[in-house]
């Protein structure tokens, strides 16, 4: 790839269209990652350091620990679904447009087919 083609990426990176894609990606991923990581570390630390709290009964055989453990499964499924939906509705189309534009520009610059 020539120097000119490389400049295309700088130009695209500064474009409003790309920055919008990046902003949407980060706006979902950063808070969601902080949330699930804190929730998981909190769960593991609580289970290992204050097991008495986790042993409190809720209903029948079910105690706080069971609710928290199954809650981890549930939150993982929900976040997976939410991420996929957000990406499909808010990011895919815009990203694809930037991709075609970028590839048009690099093709024009380098003159070859790659």
């Amino acid at each position: 790839m020539g120097a000119a083609a490389a400049d295309v990426y700088l130009e695209v990176q500064r474009s409003a269209a790309f920055q919008e894609v990046r902003r949407r990606y980060r706006k979902f991923v950063v808070p969601a990652s902080v949330a699930f990581f804190a929730w998981y570390v909190g769960y593991v630390v609580t289970a290992t350091t204050v097991p008495e709290l986790m042993a409190r009964p809720v209903a029948g055989a079910v105690n706080v620990a069971m609710v928290a453990g199954l809650g981890q499964f549930l939150s993982t499924f929900l976040l997976t679904w939410a991420y996929a939906r957000h990406a499909r509705l808010r990011r895919d189309r815009a990203a694809l447009e930037v991709r075609w534009d970028t590839q048009e520009l690099t093709r024009g610059m380098s003159g070859s087919g790659s």
Partner: peptide, 17 residues
């Protein structure tokens, strides 16, 4: 290398190239 960072960022989020 700013140019290479730009390339990685643009490619990673859009799939260009």
């Amino acid at each position: 290398d700013e140019v290479k960072h730009a390339e990685t960022e643009v490619r990673s989020l859009t799939g260009a190239g």
